[in-house]
Write a protein that binds this DNA or RNA. Structure first.
Lengths: 214, 214
DNA sequence: TAGATTGTTAATCGATTAACAATC
DNA sequence: TAGATTGTTAATCGATTAACAATC
């Protein structure tokens, strides 16, 4: 791809900040404000105002207005549309241990139209439901994924079973995996994996701590 | 700091990869290998071999040997030392809901000498212990943090109580916080915060999925 | 020796920050 | 109008990748 059209792809960093913008903007809207400045967003989220304007320029249908700022509701609609959250997005959780259940019931998705439709596990004693969300045996993964046309899954099984669970997910039609197991997964082309490594996060946290110790 | 000495700080990206190297190296060691090449590490972890060599150059006390690679045990010791995991590191979990409990019992720390010493919660029914790990009322945070000289905490309370729980942690002497609540925290200088935002991770995952759809 | 593998310098890519002109 | 705020171009910073020389 030669990028002649010069559309200048949106950056990953920008995408990662959009959910936080969305949460803040909804809060602002619920307080009844119609406009918000990039400086106000930046202040609330601990980022830079120029960065906010650049991020918003990527996704917004309407420019901000000098002296007034951005129209809150337009921005909310634009970000939701950009993230694809104007329609509901179905995801499954594979592995219904403590972490899997925590994610199955995570309240933090409330603003994002993400539906965690079900969890799956191999252990018979975990089959059933928690707070109305079903937990199925892993054998039913295929069926449920196809029925709900699920494209993304969250993997929370123990390390030993991570690769085989991953293979099962891909076989069922899942194209993107958020992996909480501390293993690197082998996946075919066309499948995306993101790693959520708690040990890595703590290592970075400790690193930043030492910096400020000086 | 003028950086005249030209010590060239270690990059955050490097730090974030060290735990994965450590896990892999321990696996290699347990298989009885004495040497490992940067290409083998890169292949297993899905990163580039040049990157691996650069990362290792930052932390290792001994250069790799052409034709043989790196001495596995030396590398393990060097990374552990660099991350400060040659001594045990105590952390606490504030918020003992599902996510808090999942972290309290997380097996993924096994190679890292990280001790999750206790969790804390305001709900009386959560006080007690899970699998031998104590859950205390939040009022005891100060006492326990001081007793174990804890410098880092993991925050897993609901959004509404995140800021006040954060304040309590800082008051108790905690200097670094890994925050799982979807809120931006206000902290004084000298305290580090890292955000773990599940909605942001999913947004990035969905983004990478669309890319490969083309 | 030849070849595999390392380590380093330079080039590139990506993201943030600085500077500043535009405008309601 | 003057001032607050936006949007954009250029400069900087940070991380990855390419190129290649060194060496066991």
């Amino acid at each position: 791809m030669d990028n002649i059209g010069q559309e200048s792809e949106i950056s990953k960093a920008t995408v990662s900040r959009l959910p936080a913008y969305l949460r803040f903007l909804k809060e602002v809207a619920s307080r009844g404000s119609w406009y918000v400045s990039s400086a106000a967003i930046a202040e609330a989220l601990g980022v830079s105002a120029v960065g906010v304007r650049k991020d918003l320029a990527f996704v917004s249908s309407q420019a901000g207005k000098p002296k007034r700022g951005f129209e809150v509701n337009t921005l909310i609609a634009d970000i939701e549309k950009f993230l694809g959250y104007d329609e509901r997005t179905a995801v499954v959780v594979v592995g219904a241990g403590r972490l899997g259940k925590a994610i199955l019931l995570y309240e933090g998705f409330e603003h994002f139209k993400i539906d965690v439709v079900a969890a799956f596990d191999v252990k018979p004693e975990r089959i059933g439901a928690v707070s109305g969300k079903p937990i199925y045996p892993l054998e039913r993964l295929d069926e449920i994924v196809r029925r709900h046309d699920v494209k993304a899954g969250i993997l929370t099984v123990p390390r030993e079973s991570a690769q085989s669970a991953c293979d099962a997910m891909i076989k069922a039609g899942i194209r993107a995996i958020l992996n909480f197991s501390p293993v690197s997964l082998k996946v075919p082309d066309g499948v995306s994996v993101r790693y959520e490594d708690l040990a890595a996060s703590l290592a970075m946290l400790f690193g930043s701590m030492q910096d400020s110790d000086k």
